[in-house]
Design a protein around this nucleic acid. Structure first.
Length: 432
DNA sequence: TTTTGCGGGTGCT
DNA sequence: AGCACCCGCAAAA
């Protein structure tokens, strides 16, 4: 079969090992942050996340002696061997280091919660072997195929793990007396914390704060068997979206260009009305450098270039599919991105008051978009929370149902997490 | 220091 | 041959 002969119904019939892969792809997929089961996706070659073969699962490169197809296998998840529970019963699900050496080193460390030994739960979701992911670049697309179904909880995401390390560094660098003072308090509150694990409060609290159970886009909005990327969820949740217009030759903006176009200045995060705000008054005292705060608070996540849907423009209300919150959560939502030119309309995002109108600083960014992703887009599997904590190892929040329009206050109340809201800003500062 | 990709090599089926 | 996995290397972050 010639690539050109592929029809929509054949879009799923290809195999990563096929000599020829479909090239007349009409719909490309949203980047999947948590691909699971036996799935296949076709991403745009412009998709930065796809280009980087990203996954929130801890995937390590595996040599398959085929330079055309990149193969990665899952490393599983690192848990506390004592099966301790942190605040509110949350479990420890750390991201295994990808590097063998780093992973060995990691396993010698202690549980950040109880100081107990850590253990690695290997992935055996593919016939007893780790789940494997395959990536293949072909033409204008990047083909992805996963084999196996993860049989373990989700680890923290790459960016979350990086943020944890970064936070640790911040802590190990005495920069001010106030910082030192807070260290003492923090150390006291976290007897199990080691230097290596650094600022757990930040990671945990931040997750807790950002995690909006009720806004679980994965279930709430998309509610498809497979996980949606953070951005995916967000866009769907708010009826937002973008597209890579491969069908329209007149389109002058590719995904990357659109991404650049919609970058928002770092200063935006301090705008009134933003979900995340800079540390205030006393809280801020711990951080002389706002950027430092900003960086930590942001977890360095920017879906636009590091995470999911990196290439899709921000807010656009006009979209071939109705991803509005009102959509029945039980209804499957197309996960594919039709390659049709979007009708660009200006819209105001609930948490990006002026999103799309200003530019993000690529280096110091707060990416609200990506927050949801790992927090709000959970598969029915288990929920690692942003930092691998969860109220229940395999918890799953109830679905708000049709009227899932996100209301921060309401969600917090409904989920009995009112305190999250109250502590949110404080939690954003790792040195509180 | 860690991630990522690559590739040589080995052992198993 | 296909697969899993080990190892080391190099580039990049």
């Amino acid at each position: 079969m010639e690539p050109e002969d592929f029809e929509d119904k054949d879009m799923l019939s290809w195999d990563i090992n096929d000599m020829k892969l479909p090239q007349n792809v009409k719909k490309i997929d949203w980047f999947q942050e948590w691909p699971d089961s036996y799935e296949k996706f076709i991403y745009s070659s412009e998709d930065r996340s796809a280009q980087r073969h990203l996954s929130s699962w801890a995937m390590r490169n595996t040599n398959n002696h085929n330079s055309r197809i990149l193969k990665k296998s899952c490393l599983g998840v690192v848990v506390c061997s004592l099966d301790c529970s942190a605040k509110e019963g949350r479990k420890i699900y750390l991201r295994p280091a990808i590097c063998d050496k780093a992973r060995q080193k990691q396993q010698r460390k202690r549980c950040p919660n109880c100081d107990g030994p850590l253990k690695l739960i290997p992935c055996r979701g593919h016939g007893g072997f780790p789940v494997t992911n395959f990536w293949r670049h072909d033409g204008r697309f990047i083909f992805f195929q996963s084999k196996g179904e993860h049989d373990h909880p989700k680890p923290e995401t790459k960016l979350e793990a990086e943020a944890r390390r970064a936070t640790k560094k911040v802590h190990t660098i005495p920069s001010s007396s106030s910082l030192k003072a807070n260290r003492g308090r923090e150390a006291k509150s976290l007897p199990g914390e080691t230097q290596s694990w650094g600022n757990l409060p930040l990671t945990w609290s931040f997750q807790e704060s950002i995690q909006l159970p009720g806004s679980d886009g994965g279930h709430l909005i998309a509610n498809t068997p497979q996980q949606k990327s953070p951005n995916d969820c967000l866009f769907k949740s708010y009826g937002l979206g973008g597209t890579t217009d491969l069908a329209d030759p007149t389109s002058t903006l590719g995904p990357t260009e659109l991404y650049e176009k919609y970058k928002v200045s770092n200063s935006r995060i301090y705008s009134s009305g933003d979900l995340l705000q800079p540390p205030v008054s006393g809280v801020l005292s711990d951080y002389d450098d706002l950027q430092t705060w900003n960086k930590n608070a942001a977890f360095g996540r920017n879906p636009l270039n590091d995470n999911s849907c990196p290439n899709y423009p921000f807010p656009q209300t006009s979209w071939p599919y109705d991803f509005s919150p009102s959509q029945n959560s039980a209804e499957p939502i197309p996960q594919q991105i039709p390659l049709e030119p979007p009708v660009a309309k200006t819209s105001s995002h609930p948490i990006w008051p002026n999103s799309g109108s200003e530019l993000y600083d690529e280096k110091v960014h707060v990416d609200f978009n990506s927050y949801y992703p790992s927090t709000a887009c959970h598969s029915p599997q288990e929920d690692p929370f942003l930092f691998t904590y969860t109220s229940h190892p395999y918890h799953q929040y109830s679905l708000p149902g049709k009227n899932s329009k996100w209301n921060f206050d309401e969600e917090m109340r409904c989920m009995g997490l009112e305190h999250c809201k109250n502590e949110m800003l404080l939690n954003l500062c790792p040195l509180r």
